[in-house]
Nucleic acid binder design. Structure first.
Lengths: 155, 155
DNA sequence: TGCAAAATCACCCAAAAGTATGACTGAAAA
DNA sequence: TTTTCAGTCATACTTTTGGGTGATTTTGCA
């Protein structure tokens, strides 16, 4: 039995000590009053009272509390951390270039501006957007943006 | 409470019983060797044990159970709640009709569709969008949507 | 090394979006 | 009462977008 175990049984050891103390008290009382012979009944009564008290005290001390679990719902606002929905991205078979165009589109750029930024011709961007609309099953860039956001393809 | 609590305190009660048994053994030994002379002590010991038991029993029977309340926080992840940025809305002096058009625009509707939904002519919607772009200082609906979302004018 | 997918570009046409300007009404404010 | 303003609508015009088709070049991968 290590120190830990001693600590664990601290309570029980305490009860033992308490009982021992009471017994000593009993002995002492015996010594003091045994002389008076007919004090026996009083003595017995005192023992009864004291030990009843001890029993009650013991019981109260030893009852393990009933655990009542209260679940409190705590609202946690998910931060605006964007996680790209790669599953959907693969399902729709969007190419990287198309996704790039989609992002710029969502940022409010015109096809011409996107073309300039990506150093390609306007017609190329038009092709990309057309394919994008086909894959996303929409017919306007605003719809594409709305759907892409909904599917977490863009922030 | 009774039986359950007893089971719960099995260990402690066992300690008590063991102690009592030891006492009895002690008394018995005493009795065996000192015979009737010390009959009183046996009697006192018996009283002590019995009344201790009585006390325990009383306490277990009559005391209302201790309840320990454990509060567990449960994290509930809620999507970000949209709060319209009325300050910005007033600052930009957007009319209610314009905001309405803006919302439908952000949902991917064409001007024609917005006109039909609001029971007005296409030209009216064009006027609204034009004013909207002036007030938002943009020149495309995609930019308007982007800016409006950024300013929390629309979800 | 060769093929499929991706990326690039062109052209045409139609639809939608956007610009500019002006006008009318009704309600509310000055 | 006059002014202001939101809301409505129209016409005319330009720009952008989107659909359809076809073609060439790159490129990643088996």
């Amino acid at each position: 039995m290590t120190f830990k175990a001693i600590i664990k049984n601290k309570q029980n050891i305490l009860y033992g000590v308490a009982l021992a103390a009471l017994l000593l008290l009993l002995k002492w009382l015996e010594w003091r009053f045994v002389i008076i012979d007919n004090a026996f009944e009083i003595y017995a009564g005192a023992i009864a009272v004291v030990f009843t008290g001890l029993g009650i005290w013991l019981a109260l001390k030893l009852i393990t509390p009933k655990v009542k679990t209260v679940v409190v719902e705590k609202q946690v606002f998910t931060g605006p951390v964007f996680v790209l929905n790669e599953a959907e991205l693969n399902k729709l078979r969007l190419s990287s270039r198309e996704l790039e165009v989609l992002q710029l589109m969502a940022n409010g750029h015109s096809n011409q501006q996107i073309a300039e930024r990506l150093f390609v011709s306007l017609n190329t961007i038009k092709t990309h957007t057309s394919n994008l609309f086909l894959k996303l099953e929409v017919e306007r860039r605003t719809q594409a943006i709305e759907k892409a956001k909904r599917l977490s393809l863009i922030p």
